[in-house]
């Protein structure tokens, strides 16, 4: 049996992009696969849950789990992998802060089920059939996982050791994390394995940002053709770069799109969305309520904009009534 450190990858409520990002390591993937023994990776390799259950506790050196926790099955797997792993890493925005799936916390489970199985334009379901956790078919008891009332980030379900942020994380961060893991040079528990400064520090357009921004209008990316050299905020786009943790090398801005906040906040911020709101509203012009409202009308969906990747970690955790 191999003596290389055992590593696991797992996905919960996610899109698969995080899995892709592992492959994005390119040649480095060989370095990683050479250095470790991947014992669990349902997306790429055939391992069964029972194999994991059979392993002694803490026998996996590290598990990188991506995806938010939405169903009882995901919750169960999170507990299982926690128990079997020495280090559990929340990998990617969904595991880190709830990600896009946690935007569902604006709706009740019942609203979501009704929309998906009845009202969605692509749905034909005259019987209004909904999936049932328990059912019988041909004398067999069938069970499917239940959907939880709310979407959770990984650390809202189990204890998490580290976080690798991003939607998806960049190969650079993954590589650095794996190297740190292999060398045993890990920072204190709970650390987000990315720099603790905002994106602006890495943004090549930083110098082009004027020092006296006062916006009278916010625009959405599809509404303008942005100057590829100038600060996007200065062009009226609600860029989250100033309020979002760096480490991505401002990759979206290099693609002429504003930062949407996938790396989450820096360690000093308790509520990412509220902080983005504070900073963006501070750059708005106007002294009369009407004037201010008109300026801020360019941000039609504050929750979806400011908590795009982290409604689960909003201090309110979602819509509260």
């Amino acid at each position: 049996m191999s003596t290389k450190p055992k590593i696991g990858f797992y996905w919960c409520a996610s899109c698969g992009g995080c899995e892709e990002s592992v492959v994005d390591l390119a040649e480095d993937v060989l370095m990683v696969t050479g250095a470790v023994d991947i014992i669990f990776w349902p997306c790429a390799m055939d391992f069964k849950k029972a194999d994991i259950e059979a392993m002694p506790d803490k026998s996996i050196v590290a598990t990188l789990l991506n995806g938010a926790i939405r169903s009882s099955e995901q919750e169960e797997m999170a507990h299982l992998l926690r128990r079997k792993s020495q280090v559990l890493i929340a990998y990617g925005s969904c595991a880190h802060t709830g990600g896009i799936p946690s935007l569902a916390n604006q709706f009740t489970r019942e609203q979501i089920m009704k929309f998906v199985y009845e009202d969605a334009p692509t749905m034909v379901n005259d019987q209004k059939t909904h999936p049932q956790p328990h059912s019988r078919d041909n004398g067999h008891e069938l069970e499917i996982p239940v959907l939880r009332n709310v979407v959770r980030a990984l650390d809202q379900v189990v204890d998490v050791d580290y976080y690798i942020p991003g939607c998806p994380p960049t190969p650079k961060l993954l590589k650095e994390a794996v190297l740190a893991l292999l060398s045993g040079k890990l920072p204190p528990k709970g650390t987000v394995l990315a720099p603790d400064h905002a994106v602006c520090q890495e943004c090549l357009r930083n110098d082009s940002k004027p020092q006296d921004i006062s916006l009278t209008e916010f625009k959405r990316p599809h509404e303008i053709i942005a100057d590829p050299e100038k600060c996007l905020l200065a062009q009226g786009l609600a860029c989250m770069g100033p309020a979002t943790r760096g480490g991505c090398d401002a990759v979206c801005i290099k693609g002429n799109m504003p930062c949407t906040g996938c790396f989450g906040p820096v360690s000093r911020v308790h509520d990412h969305g509220a902080k983005i709101l504070s900073y963006l509203a501070s750059t708005a012009a106007g002294k009369e309520e009407d004037e201010i409202s008109a300026t801020l009308a360019g941000i039609p969906d504050p929750v979806g904009t400011f908590y795009r990747y982290g409604l689960a970690k909003c201090l309110l955790r979602g819509k509260v009534s």
Binding site: K209, P210, Q211, G246
Partner: peptide
Amino acid sequence: DCSGCKTCI
């Protein structure tokens, strides 16, 4: 900690 974003100025 400062990223030099100039929001405060």
